[in-house]
């Protein structure tokens, strides 16, 4: 398995647990939706996977590398994990090119330029390369945030409620776009949502999270 999460526990205090014994596995290129109501622990799960929080117990493995176990904890900047935040968190003082290039510091100038152009082409936004985030619509900001997260070719992509800031009309269009981009790049992705339609349109599999526990899984059959 490409992603393996075993017996994950997390609590902000010693006696209360936000996540209880969460375990699941994913194949490479699979898109999994974590579906749950607010407070169910779905965003916390993403924070644990990304390394922004440390679990109280459990093991996380991605691409045969142990990111977290009883005696291992890989810092977030070394995990090769991409993440799209709920509000996108685009750096407001950088234009689109600089936002996308932020995670490419290991590349040469030319390679960086080529990668940014490839990302802009992927999301079909070449004409907005010099715009600042405040000059973009919500949908455009989301696509830039996606390109920024994909640019360093992460091992896994995490998306936190990626549609919560979009209008209903825009949502349907962007859902399909998002799935097609992720499939084009063969990206393994986990996204959390409270909206069943989001999960249905994008995911290959849905994990239902309730009170910090995965209570049910559903494989989506596509024709």
């Amino acid at each position: 398995m490409y992603v393996r999460i075993e017996d994950l526990y997390f609590g902000y205090t010693k006696n209360t647990h936000v996540l209880h014994n969460v375990s699941f596995a994913m194949q490479e290129g699979e898109i999994v939706a974590i579906l749950g109501s607010s407070g169910s622990g779905k965003s916390t799960l993403l924070r644990l996977l990304s390394g922004l929080e440390m679990p109280s117990k459990g093991r996380i493995e991605v691409n045969e590398e142990t990111l977290c176990s009883a005696n291992t904890f890989v810092e977030c900047e070394k995990r090769h994990v991409g993440m799209v935040f709920q509000d996108y968190a685009l750096f407001p003082h950088m234009d689109v090119i600089k936002n996308i290039a932020f995670g490419l510091k290991h590349l040469s100038k030319d390679a960086k330029k080529g990668r940014v152009q490839a990302m802009l082409k992927l999301i079909n936004m070449e004409e907005k390369s010099h715009a600042f985030p405040h000059e973009l619509s919500g949908g455009q900001q989301q696509r830039i945030a996606l390109a920024r997260a994909l640019a360093p070719s992460p091992d896994i992509l995490l998306l936190d409620e990626p549609f919560s800031n979009l209008d209903e009309d825009l949502k349907t269009k962007i859902r399909h776009e998002l799935r097609s981009i992720m499939k084009k790049t063969a990206m393994t992705a986990i996204f959390v949502t409270h909206d069943y339609d989001d999960a249905l349109d994008i995911a290959d599999r849905i994990c239902y999270l309730e009170d910090g526990r995965i209570v049910h899984e559903e494989v989506i059959k596509r024709s």
Binding site: G82, M83, F85, D87, G103
Partner: peptide, 18 residues
């Protein structure tokens, strides 16, 4: 200042100083 900006930068591979 929202933590999301710093957390995002860290996830994109930037160390604390950067």
């Amino acid at each position: 200042q929202s933590a999301a900006f710093s957390e995002n930068a860290r996830l994109l591979g930037a160390g604390k100083v950067r």
